[in-house]
Amino acid sequence: MTFEEIKKILEDNLKGKIKELINPFPRRMTLWVDKADALETCKVLKEKAGFYHLSTITGRDTGDKLEALYHFAQNGMSLTLRLQTDKSNPTLSTTIAVYPGAIFYEREVHDLVGINFEGHPDMRPLVLPEDWPQGVYPLRKDWHYNREKGAIE
């Protein structure tokens, strides 16, 4: 589908909920909605707009907010869904009901950026050790890695 076709489907189904819908590069588009509308948007994307594949979820620290970018794909188009949440209470609702393949991506984002996915059945650490300190998220901007002196080189 072209950008115009997808734009029409999304505007029909998500009236007034779209904050931003742009087409920055050929075969790329970005959709920005409020986090409360995340699940509904995912359903529309999968069932109406034909985005059958969730490539991955990127977690990002924008400075004052945390951002989750869902990268969807279909033949000939790649869509980025932007959701933002506060840093003080970073929660998003899980999308594994619509995209079961998101299970590991959400765990990874939880590990590294610290967004809680409400309703996710299994929020154990995936890539970080079990004894990793609570509340420390290495991919946030305030975390810096300092190599100690005397480390094995």
Partner: peptide, 30 residues
């Protein structure tokens, strides 16, 4: 399989965020 990078730049010579998703992670649930 599909390899995807998300790159965000901030106008300097260093990127603001690079996300790498290699195909293996996509295949683990399956």
């Amino acid at each position: 399989g599909e390899c995807i990078h998300y790159i965000r730049s901030n106008g300097t010579d260093k990127p603001d965020r690079v996300k790498v998703r290699a195909p293996t992670l996509a295949n683990w649930p399956a």
